[in-house]
Amino acid sequence: MRRLWIKEFRLAASPLSYLFLIAACMTLLPGYPILMGAFFICLGLFQSFQNAREANDTLYTVLLPVRKTDFVRAKYAFVCTIQGIGFLLCAALTAVRMTVLSGGTAYVENALMNPSPVYLAAVLLIFAAFNVLFVGGFFRTAYKMGAPFLMFGIAALLLITIAEALHHFPGLGFLNTTQGERLGLQFYILLAAAAVYGILTLLSCHSSRKRFERIDL
């Protein structure tokens, strides 16, 4: 499995998957829907899938001495690695914005979502949507990726809209706070989102392996 994971980076990945990790820096933008950064990280991953399909990566991989379904696990491992790096970058920049940059006027007057544990939870939910709708959808055929990415795009925009709107509702203002006692509750939300991400990704991987085993290449 480790060798297949390395193969993903050395042969199948598009440089855009790494380049689009820079989108995590959107965490620092005031007056901007910062969750778009998570969407762009997924767009970078989409480029790798496209790159791999054009390079006939599926055929190459299944000819190697691996189980056919190991190909699926390697793809999920690659996706989770890039998402993990993206999440760590978002978390680090969230910490910076919540501490050393917390007094900046532009940040104090920000009407949109602030970087916080709830923001990081939403990042994880967008990543989970990508793994279920796009990666899971791709493995229905192992070559069609337009419709799965469209489905993910719609879901991501809905998630971003909901995340940006929720804290404006009465009683939900704590979702956008960056300090105070209610911050603890935000960490529970982050933990719950991490669990959702893990469970949905595992379920998606499991069903993709079953589907891929029956696909004729």
């Binding site: 060798r3 390395i6 042969l11 390079a55 006939n56 990566d57 055929l59 190697l64």
Partner: peptide, 22 residues
């Protein structure tokens, strides 16, 4: 299955470097 039809833009050396490890 006939001719090598994958990673057409990668150098053969790079493809082999990965392949041999398996």
């Amino acid at each position: 299955g006939g001719a090598v039809d994958y990673y057409k833009h990668k150098k053969i050396r790079d493809i082999i470097d990965v392949t041999r490890s398996f």
